[in-house]
């Protein structure tokens, strides 16, 4: 039994994966990226079919490099196993996608809490990806695990950012450390760490201003924030999350690359996956830079956040395919 079949063995899995496919629901109607249709309508495995597959992957923002690499591995496997019927590819595609993501490693998406004392989580990313909202969601997620959390309003640049975090703090009933707009973000983080230690908070979540990765001065500012955390806690942040919008195209790679140079990225928070975008760029990021996905944002509610699960994600990518398959 291939992974494909395993993927749908349990009802539990299906229920869990249900969330992931919400976003894909609208696209697949009249969309050109129906894997099932493509495989069913092809008579044999030929160049035409590979072209269609490439289209499906590129349309999911996986990027041409990763798509081409994926397809060449698929070709090799088709040759090796002597596959002839297009539908035989179903298992293979899913298996290969797992390989592409896992790379033979065990990917642990759990938050790496500090063994003792304060756990500091740093959130970075370009403008408008949903850092502040993700922080609120993760803070809530941690609260449900019984953690005492605190938020640090490190975005002192964007108008209304501090207020936005304060409102979330109020809703979550957790303390928010903030200074005025225009204050040095490092000083906010500095104060928050002191306060968190004093009040014996478990996890401090640090918001930062959105910054485009090609702005040198802003990246230096981020470096300073990182150094402040190291200095005040004796270690780098327990985790640094790069928040990426699912609609992001190939620029996501550049984001991951450049942010990693300034502050090592533990994982990605992929937001807005409840839209029609498939967020395939994170597969390219994993493939090319090795950075895993830690969380996905799947809606506007505070509970609309899940730890990333590659099986659910693949299910979401090809939900149409799997569903019809099951109902037969």
């Amino acid at each position: 039994m291939g992974l494909f079949a395993k993927l749908f063995a349990g009802k539990e899995r299906k229920a869990k994966a249900q969330k992931f496919k919400i976003g894909m629901e609208k696209t697949r109607k009249g969309s050109l990226s129906s894997l099932r249709q493509v495989l069913l309508s092809a008579n044999r495995i030929d160049e035409g079919l590979y072209d269609k597959l490439e289209e499906i992957f590129v349309t999911a923002d996986i990027g041409l490099d990763t798509a081409v690499q994926f397809l060449s591995e698929l070709r090799k496997e088709v040759k090796r196993q002597n596959l002839e019927k297009p539908m035989d590819l179903q298992n293979l595609i899913v298996d290969k996608l797992f390989d592409l993501y896992l790379k033979g490693q065990i990917v642990d998406t759990r938050i790496p809490f500090a063994s003792e004392g304060l756990t500091v989580l740093l959130f970075v990313g370009v403008n408008g990806t949903g850092k502040t909202t993700s922080i609120a969601k993760i803070a809530h997620f941690l609260q449900t695990q019984g953690k005492r959390v605190m938020l640090a309003a490190g975005d002192t640049f964007r108008a209304g950012a501090i207020e936005q975090l304060r409102i979330w703090g109020g809703r979550l009933d957790c303390p928010v450390i903030a200074k005025s707009e225009g204050a040095d973000p490092s000083s906010v983080i500095f104060e928050a760490i002191r306060e968190a230690k004093k009040t014996q908070v478990d996890v401090l979540l640090c918001d930062t201003a959105g910054r485009l990765q090609n702005k040198v001065n802003l990246m230096k500012e981020l470096d300073k924030i990182h150094r402040t955390i190291v200095r005040e806690t004796g270690t780098p942040p327990s985790a640094t999350y790069l928040v990426i919008d699912a609609t992001t195209g190939q620029n996501g790679l550049s984001q991951a690359k450049v942010f990693s140079e300034v502050t090592p990225i533990t994982g990605i928070v992929l937001t807005k996956l409840d839209g029609t975008a498939k967020g395939g760029i994170v597969l390219a990021i994993r493939n090319e830079l090795g950075i895993p996905i830690s969380f996905v944002g799947l809606g506007e509610k505070i509970t609309d956040l899940s730890p990333f699960d590659i099986e659910d994600y693949i299910y979401g990518l090809f939900a149409d395919f799997f569903e019809t398959e099951e109902s037969r």
Binding site: V58, A60, D61, T276, K278
Partner: peptide, 28 residues
């Protein structure tokens, strides 16, 4: 957002069909 990927088509077509857009502003 200028960084938008393949989904730009779905988004703009859907907004256009619903509202009849007159133009676009590209940010970032």
């Amino acid at each position: 957002d200028a960084m938008t990927g393949q989904d730009a088509v779905n988004v703009s077509v859907a907004f256009h069909q619903a509202l009849g857009l007159t133009g676009c502003i590209l940010t970032k």
